[in-house]
Design a protein around this nucleic acid. Structure first.
Lengths: 172, 172
DNA sequence: CCACAGACTTGACCGATTCAAGAAAATGCG
DNA sequence: CGCATTTTCTTGAATCGGTCAAGTCTGTGG
């Protein structure tokens, strides 16, 4: 009901969200916003385009990028860039959570802040630095890949991933 | 003495470092290794190529990338990728320090771990996740840009930078 | 229902990085 | 020392994620 079929309900809600963010309401925007909301997050522009097309029928990749930027600027969507991966988009929840990235399969998982609203937000820096935000990325192996790994910490797909630039620490 | 002229001393040391890392000793490798060591770090491949060329005279960009990867794999160089910036390279010091990135000018500054060797290294994750590393990036304004900013937190160059993809938080 | 700003489509373009093929150079060995 | 083997470097093309630009289409306000 929320994915492809009668999306009436969600359409209306998406329209409302756009409107109250002061944005024009268009089919592509509703579709992308719904795609981001429906997905578990962490999808890239092209995947979201695919989902959105199930609603709009046709949607250019460029439009997808435009919409995603507009939604990000409006504070409805959060953009996350992870080294070696295309940008991912998720619903902005204003909780400044972080991400765990599996070095083997590339999957991403949300990680809540360990302490309060901003862990690690106290860098050892001179007072005249204006620190606005801290982004934390955890690297490791997800349960599935960990089980499949011959040696703990070194999976078969690891080498492949490394070559795709998953920073940091290539550890070969 | 360490930059362009008689680089004998450093050349020899670079050769030694390569050798003890089990790598073949070549002029391009020594040159790039010296370039990384001499710089304050945080230079991208093309800049390092420029520095290295002052020693080798000629060095392809492709070779620079090859060398940097080899050095990274060998644990002599640390690669850092920051959203919206090309990859930066610095001498591997095995201290897992983090980075502060200025949203206005894009400059990068090292930040020591606030607590022990691995702050934020305790993600709220199920026990079957194998967390190997935590990368923390602080975003904000460096002293210079902060002073130049008309409104605190929003510099004149900010918009420009945002459009170049400096994640996270576009805050327009 | 019209006009106009803002949004979509298409297609060229770009920066960072990698792939591929051949030439050059480094180490091992006789 | 001189060659063979293997790795590395050079050159040039290609890929990938993403942006720019020009023209057409469509919300929205009047």
């Amino acid at each position: 009901m929320t994915t492809s079929g009668s999306t009436g309900e969600t359409m209306a809600r998406a329209a409302e969200r756009l409107r109250s963010a002061g944005m024009r309401v268009t089919v592509p925007r509703m579709a992308v916003l719904m795609a981001v909301s429906d997905s578990e997050g962490h999808l890239d522009a092209d995947s979201l385009r695919g989902l959105a097309q199930r609603i709009t029928g046709r949607l250019s990749l460029q439009a997808t990028y435009n919409v995603l930027r507009a939604l990000t600027d409006a504070g409805l969507v959060r953009t996350t860039q992870i080294a070696g991966h295309p940008a991912r988009y998720e619903t902005e929840r204003h909780d400044n959570h972080h991400h765990f990235v599996c070095r083997a399969c590339g999957s991403i998982r949300d990680v809540e802040c360990a302490v309060g609203a901003a862990p690690c937000m106290e860098p050892r820096l001179p007072a005249d630095y204006d620190t606005q935000e801290a982004a934390v990325t955890f690297w490791g192996l997800c349960p599935g890949c960990r089980a499949a790994a011959p040696l703990p910490g070194l999976s078969p797909q690891h080498e492949h991933l490394r070559r795709h630039g998953s920073m940091p620490g290539s550890s070969r």
